[in-house]
Design a protein around this nucleic acid. Structure first.
Lengths: 148, 148
DNA sequence: TATTATTTCTATCAAATTAATAGGAAATAA
DNA sequence: TTATTTCCTATTAATTTGATAGAAATAATA
């Protein structure tokens, strides 16, 4: 029961993108990769998925790059993780009961269903903006420390 | 973010074991495997892990088999899943911050920490007995239907 | 218009993890 | 002594994850 690197890297990159884009100037994948210590090529895949899910806007060509498609407070963490790891369900039968003949009467399925719901609830109740604000206040605290 | 077959099969087998053991008579792995449509050999491994975690008692030799080590209401689902999948944490750095140099200031780590806690909370608040009771009442309802 | 810098797309490879099988040793009751 | 069961150790198979390579598309720039 782990979040894959796609989900982890993607979430960090979305925060990075939000913090480092000023106005309508797109951010290069290569810059995000450098700052986050990630492979540029792998990050391309990740942004492909984010783009497909409508979370980022791409500008092709020279001086192109990526921008957030929506405001950070309108992007839930559930959207980001779903874009990168697929729908959140701890077992297949939660989404698709037909794959198992005993799904209807299976008590463990109900359990996994309930837990999957909790996870969804948690990730839906937090937005990208929450993480950005946390990050910013953390950075500010670091800076402030030099003045004390 | 999925529960592995070990966790899924193991949980179902624990319910099966609890329901099908009468008194101190141990239950054969081969019988559980048949009822749950699982490979006998694979199930041996799963019971090895459950045994190691102190959740089941084994009796070796002819007419041997397995018994629950504790009462079903004393076995949390968290214990079962942890025995089969290891400690519940969505990312490694939640359990071991030293593996990442930026763990201390990482906001996504805090997020995964929070979600892992929720999952643990959920699984700790349900016991094997809860599932057994659900299962039994479900079976009874099926039977009752014949009399209507 | 030609060139260059950049993203996007597709195909593929490598590594790691998970799932399952196999064979036989050890234990024990009949 | 035999049949039955758990236990132990390898090995193989399958799946998922992580990463790479290069061609195609596109927009800025010279």
């Amino acid at each position: 029961m782990k979040i894959s690197t796609k989900g982890r890297y993607g979430l960090r990159s979305m925060i990075d993108l939000a913090i480092n884009s000023s106005g309508n100037t797109p951010v290069f994948i290569s810059d995000i990769a450098k700052r986050q210590h990630l492979s540029e090529k792998y990050l391309e895949h990740i942004f492909g998925a984010l783009h497909k899910a409508g979370l980022v806007r791409s500008i092709r060509g020279r001086k192109g790059g990526y921008l957030l498609q929506k405001n950070p407070e309108e992007i839930t963490l559930s959207e980001i993780i779903t874009a990168l790891e697929g729908k959140i369900s701890l077992v297949e039968c939660v989404l698709d009961p037909d794959i198992c003949p005993s799904a209807k009467k299976c008590v463990t399925r109900d359990l996994w269903q309930g837990l999957s719901d909790k996870i969804n609830e948690y990730l839906s109740s937090h937005t990208l903006n929450d993480l950005i604000q946390m990050q910013k206040s953390r950075e500010q605290n670091d800076t402030l420390m030099y003045y004390i």
